[in-house]
C-alpha cells in the first residue's frame, strides 16, 4: 500500500513537472521550405517551425527549436538532447525500428528528379545525387542507378549543376524552386515517385505521453483544416493536402 501511495505521488509529481517542461524540437535548418534559416533575421523558420509552434500552443507545451546536423539527428534524439524531430523526416519502416513517429503532418508527397535537361536517364547507369540517410537515397540505391550521397541538401543540387551527377533526387517541394529560378537551366523530370508514409514528428519510443499530445494536436489541426492552410502557404496552392 505504501509503495502504491509512493508510486502515485511520484506519478503526480512527475506529470506536474512535465507540464512546465520545455519540449526541445530538433531540426536541420537547411531544407527550404520545410525548415531553414531566415535570411534576413538569421532565425529558424519554415513550414515545420510555424506548424511546431502552433502544435505546441494547442498541446499547451512550451517548445523550443534547436538546430542539429542531419547526420546525428536520430542519435541525439535517443540520447535525450532534444525530445522531438521535425526535420522533413518521412515515416518509414526502417526508422520506425529505432524511433517512433506521430501521425503525419504532411501527406505522402512526390519525390522528383532535377536535371540539366528533360531527357536524362535516371535508371541503370545514371549517377544520381541524394542526401545521405534520406528515403530518396534508399530509393536510388535500389533503382540500379549509382548513388552519390551528400551531407546537406544544397550540395546535391550543386552536384548536378557542376556535372558531378546526372540528376538529383529529393522531395519535389524542395527542388521546384531551383527549377523555377534557373531560367530553364534545371528541369524537373516528369517521372515522379511516391515514397514514404508522409512526414511526421520523430519521437523516442519511450515518450508515449508526448506522442499522444502531438497526435491530438495534429488531429485538431487536421479537423479544422488549419494544417491545409499552412501547407498551401508554404508549399503553394496546388500542393497535396489532407
Amino acid at each position: 500500500m505504501k509503495k502504491l501511495l509512493l508510486a502515485t505521488a511520484v506519478a503526480v509529481l512527475g506529470t506536474g513537472a512535465y507540464a512546465q517542461d520545455v519540449v526541445r524540437i530538433g531540426t536541420e535548418g537547411a531544407y527550404e521550405p520545410y525548415n531553414y534559416i531566415d535570411q534576413a533575421t538569421g532565425e529558424l523558420t519554415g513550414y515545420e517551425i510555424e506548424l511546431g509552434k502552433e502544435l505546441c500552443k494547442r498541446a499547451e507545451l512550451n517548445c523550443e527549436f534547436v538546430q542539429n546536423a542531419w547526420d546525428s539527428i536520430i542519435p541525439n534524439l535517443q540520447s535525450g538532447n532534444y525530445d522531438a524531430i521535425m526535420a522533413g523526416m518521412s515515416i518509414t519502416e526502417e526508422r520506425q525500428k529505432v524511433i517512433d513517429f506521430s501521425q503525419n503532418y504532411i501527406p505522402p508527397a512526390s519525390s522528383a528528379y532535377l536535371a540539366l535537361s528533360a531527357d536524362v536517364n535516371t535508371g541503370e547507369g545514371a549517377v544520381i545525387a541524394a542526401q545521405t540517410g534520406t528515403i530518396q537515397a534508399g530509393y536510388v540505391a535500389e533503382s540500379g542507378a549509382t548513388l552519390l550521397e551528400f551531407a546537406s541538401p544544397d550540395e546535391t543540387v550543386a552536384a548536378v549543376k557542376n556535372g558531378e551527377a546526372d540528376a538529383v533526387f529529393a522531395d519535389k517541394d524542395y527542388l521546384a524552386p531551383f527549377a523555377k529560378d534557373s531560367n530553364g537551366e534545371l528541369v524537373l523530370l516528369p517521372n515522379e515517385v511516391q515514397i514514404g508514409g508522409g512526414i511526421g514528428i520523430g519521437l523516442r519510443k519511450s515518450d508515449t505521453a508526448l506522442k499522444d499530445k502531438f497526435n491530438a494536436a495534429i488531429q485538431s489541426m487536421k479537423d479544422d483544416g488549419s494544417v491545409n492552410t499552412m501547407i498551401k502557404k508554404w508549399f503553394g496552392e496546388d500542393s497535396v493536402v489532407f
Binding site: 537547411a30 527550404e32 521550405p33 531553414y36 535570411q39 534576413a40 523558420t45 546537406s152 544544397d154 550540395e155 543540387v157 550543386a158 524552386p177 531551383f178 523555377k180 529560378d181
Partner: peptide, 11 residues
C-alpha cells in the same frame, strides 16, 4: 549555398 527567390529576400 544557393538561395531560391520564393522565401529569401536576397536570392
Amino acid at each position: 549555398s544557393a538561395k531560391t527567390s520564393g522565401n529569401n529576400p536576397y536570392p
